[in-house]
Design a binder for these strands. Structure first.
Length: 836
RNA sequence: GCCGGUGUGAUGGAAUGGUAGACGUGACGGACUCAAAAUCCGUUGGUGGCGACACCGUGAGGGUUCGAGUCCCUCCACCGGCACCA
């Protein structure tokens, strides 16, 4: 009988649609398991082959959990607001909501095609007013607690399109679309106070099971550092405070620098002797794009403030003050102390402006470059009472002294900035606030949520950088919910990150019109037990959603501090690079490729893209080989965490394996007993596959199943042996297994239960070991022979057997054994030296 | 520059400090076939040897160990992220 995957997959998908074996039951007595994948952005291009990698992996985990008796929640939804849809809509003159609807339908078809065990009754869509009602509700709670505030801040402004760009749209300092330079422009923006949660976002990482890479990246992104704030007196009458992590270098300060945006500069307008020059510098700095200011311009520039001097509180020395754009207004206090001896940036600046360079930590040559000690055991010099101390001792000593003297205090700083939450775009959740001339910003009453995104004729960005909604005067003009006077709605919308910051909560109770999630559902399902997603979301989505969840915890909506108990990450799927030099036949071709594509030509694999023609469409794969093959291959492709390259050839291997499984039915003896010959491999495989699924090592789990099948081919097989193969394979290739389960009579035998409804098989540790073991025998660490010994042989028997081996005899000739090392079931090492 | 990761046959990739290359592609040989495909059975790291075997081999160089792909040190290359964060 032939394995007709197309018919079989259709048959079982229809059956699942009808029977709903994947429905999650809130409040069941079974232990719960909540497996989560990052919900996709429904693009016009459809599912990419990258999507099935995490989806299949967590599907497999979820299926195994179900068989182990868990009540499983494995949901799916769509993160459908966002720029690509909006741009597609503008270009093709179709309303974004229609584009979204079409894309969601296509994604749904593709996901069902792949046989995922999603609970399709719990689908969420961030663009559904019933959903974003609660996104808006959360925003209002943030607003009420003072965590959402409006402030003027610099945004990316395209000088040619005359519009605000998201950071993602700025590529190397120029506009992604038109290539014109992008500059900073001051605009009023809604912000969320994520920095208030910075400490908790770092500290609570200790309590969750995230892969270490993710934790490190989050910690680095938040960037907590503990240092000292030191206050200097200045000749202007104002004191200035600097932040430093190197209080030990205070005796090495030879100048001060203030950021061009610092408000004190304007205050000092009349004091600064060369104000014209300073003002021109400020002006120039504001005109610079981020790119010029950061990437290109590592050259230090600046202007000395005539008539402004600061006094070093540590030694009373008077030092000049400069304005320079290498000091950022957004970090620390916007003013730094210049220690050119021990900070390379300060050294560059001091060298350029001819400022003194004082050595206060010994070990380098500060006339050549700044000495930044790798460890903190270097010794202090030229530093009064710190002399002779190590850096490690000097930092706290100086800090303590500064605090005692009243001009210093300990200070913790973060790199993390507050979250810029508004977008001047159409396709997002409207921000539910009204601006009243008398009452200020007033929330739309919760009873009026959702504040529905109005239908507009034109959703193109405006010339003045205002949201497209601002042109909808009917919608914009409203009355103040507070005093009833005429007022205007906020016309900015929320960023795409809003809807995705809490979607996992909605899955728990997706049809609830009265609450975001019911207490009962949240307490039953929360937290997410296992969340898998891409590394690219580690610093944005993951951090934002942890922040929102902590806020919801604080206001009593959820019962756990952290949303996700466990986080894993998958690698990207790349395509073959058609321009790779390795594919060139001749030397000339190679040279031509390198000339044309540069370093791109050196990479065998690159991201899939239409222009390279290396995109693989899951539809085509499923059509040619079936969904089970697709699922199996994408798991077998390699280490789940690493990037992998798609290979059309290798897909065949997975198909061949499924064929081999299928064909076993023809050769199976008609007995429901496990054959003695296959007992060891069966127990070994149950163990290996189970362990590997838990560790997400699905490639080796599949390899183990292949080994099992290979043994079945050489040992012969019974239906009883097949039962275990089917159960183990069921999470990977659910369609084919159900068909086999039925054909081999196991369905009938088990009251019509499907394989996926059976218990996950258990193994007997004692049966996973063969009666006899092969052991390697080394002489002086070099492999010389292998021996066969009984699994329960004692050490002496093993040594005797090894020494009796013919090849070992030859090695031992004329030698005496001085030491033996025996590692049970693995290896024996005989250490010998020439006999006297 | 900083942080994180990777480097293993022709190739994708396996290896709790314990027989390097599991499993899969590809290639080669055989069976079946008029033939091909499919399928099944073998072989497949390199060098030398008819052979038994011997030597070499996990980016480079050192080290620790009875034993290192794995641990430590110093480099090199590539990938990802951040980048004047005081």
């Amino acid at each position: 009988m032939k394995y007709d995957f197309a018919a079989i997959e259709k048959k079982w998908q229809d059956k699942w649609e009808e029977l709903k074996p994947y429905a999650a039951v809130t409040g069941s007595d079974k232990p719960k398991f909540y497996g989560l994948i990052e919900f996709p952005y429904p693009s016009a291009a459809g599912l990419h082959v990258g999507h099935p990698r995490p989806f299949t992996a967590i599907d497999i985990v979820s299926r195994k959990k179900r068989m182990e008796g868990y009540n499983v929640l494995f949901p799916i939804g769509y993160d459908a607001f966002g720029l690509p849809t909006e741009n597609f809509a503008i270009k093709n003159h179709i309303h974004p909501s229609i584009v979204t609807k079409q894309n969601v339908e296509n994604f749904t078809r593709q996901l069902k095609m792949l046989g995922y065990g999603f609970d399709w009754d719990r689908v969420v869509d961030t663009t559904d007013p019933k959903y974003y009602k609660w996104t808006q509700w959360i925003f209002l709670q943030l607003f009420k607690k003072g965590l959402a505030y409006k402030t003027t801040m610099p945004v990316n402004w395209c000088t040619s399109c005359k519009c605000v760009l998201a950071n993602e749209e700025v590529v190397e300092g120029v506009c992604e679309r038109c290539g014109a330079p992008v500059v900073r422009k001051e605009k009023s923006q809604w912000m969320l106070g994520i920095t208030k949660y910075a400490d908790r976002l770092i500290d609570d990482l200790d309590d969750v099971d995230f892969i270490e890479r993710v934790k490190t990246q989050q910690r680095n992104w938040i960037g907590r550092s503990t240092g000292t704030e030191v206050t200097f007196k200045t000749s202007t009458g104002d004191d200035v405070t600097v932040y430093t992590t190197r209080a030990d270098t205070l005796y090495g300060v030879s100048y001060m620098v203030i950021s061009p945006e610092h408000p004190l500069l304007n205050k000092w307008k009349d004091i600064i002797g060369n104000w014209d020059e300073v003002e021109a510098y400020k002006e120039a700095a504001s005109r610079k794009s981020d790119f010029e200011r950061g990437e290109l311009n590592k050259d230090k520039t600046g202007v000395r403030l005539q008539g402004v001097e600061a006094t070093n509180p540590a030694n009373g020395a008077t030092v000049p003050m400069f304005v320079s754009d290498y000091v950022l207004m957004g970090y620390g206090t916007g003013i730094v102390m210049g220690v050119p001896g021990h900070d390379q940036r300060d050294w560059d600046f001091a060298t350029k402006f001819g400022l003194p360079i004082v050595e206060v930590v010994s070990g380098g040559d500060v006339t050549k470059e700044a000495f930044v000690a790798k460890d903190d055991s270097a010794i202090m010099v030229n530093s009064d009472f710190l002399n002779g101390m190590t850096v490690a001792e000097a930092i706290p000593a100086m800090k303590k002294y500064a605090v005692e003297q009243g001009w210093g205090k300990e200070q913790v700083n973060f790199k993390l900035r507050d979250w810029v939450f508004s977008r001047q775009r159409y396709w997002g959740e409207p921000i539910p606030l009204v601006n009243c001339p008398t009452c200020g910003w007033v929330p739309v009453p919760e009873s009026e949520l959702p504040l529905v995104l109005p239908q507009v004729e034109s959703y193109e960005p405006t010339d003045d950088g205002e949201s497209p909604l601002s042109k909808m005067t009917d919608w914009v003009n409203t009355t103040c919910p507070c005093c009833g006077a005429p007022a205007k709605r906020e016309t900015d919308t929320m960023p795409q990150w809003a809807g995705s910051s809490w979607y996992f909560l909605r899955y728990m109770d997706p049809h609830n019109d009265n609450e975001l999630v019911s207490k009962e559902a949240e307490e039953y399902w929360g937290p997410v037990d296992w969340y898998n997603g891409g590394m690219e979301h580690t610093t944005l989505h993951l951090l934002y959603s942890r922040f929102w969840h902590k806020f919801l915890y604080d206001i009593g909506v959820v019962h756990t501090k952290e949303p996700y108990a466990k986080r894993t990450s998958h690698g990207m799927i790349l395509g073959k690079n058609p321009h790779y030099v390795g594919f060139a036949e001749t030397e000339e071709e190679k040279q031509a490729l390198i000339e044309k594509y540069g370093s791109q030509a050196q990479r065998p694999a690159v991201k899939m893209s239409k222009s390279l023609g290396n995109v693989v469409n899951p539809d085509d794969v499923v059509k040619a080989y079936g969904a089970d093959t697709m699922r199996l291959y994408i798991m077998f492709i390699g280490d789940f965490e690493k990037t992998a390259t798609w290979s059309d050839d290798a897909v065949k291997g997975s198909k061949r394996f499924l064929d081999r499984c299928w064909n076993l039915m023809d050769m199976a003896q008609d007995s429901f007993e496990v054959s003695k010959k296959n007992e060891a491999i069966t127990h070994k495989t149950i163990k290996k596959v189970g362990d590997d699924i838990e560790a997400l090592k699905l490639n080796t789990a599949i390899a183990a199943l292949m080994t099992m099948v290979n043994e079945f081919y050489s040992n012969g097989v019974t239906k009883g042996d097949l039962e275990y193969l089917m159960l183990l394979l069921s999470p990977f290739a659910p369609h084919m297994v159900e068909e086999m389960w039925e054909l081999t009579g196991f369905a009938a035998k088990n009251d019509g239960k499907m394989a996926m409804q059976m218990d996950w098989p258990k193994y007997d540790e004692s049966k996973t070991v063969d009666a006899e073991r092969e052991m390697a025998v080394q002489v002086n660490g070099k492999l010389r022979s292998t021996i066969i010994v009984a699994a329960d042989a004692d050490e002496q028997t093993i040594i005797d057997t090894a020494c009796a081996d013919e090849k070992i005899q030859r090695q031992l000739n004329g030698m005496q054994i001085v030491k033996t090392i025996v590692v049970k079931n693995k290896i024996i090492n005989l250490i010998v030296k020439p006999a006297k």
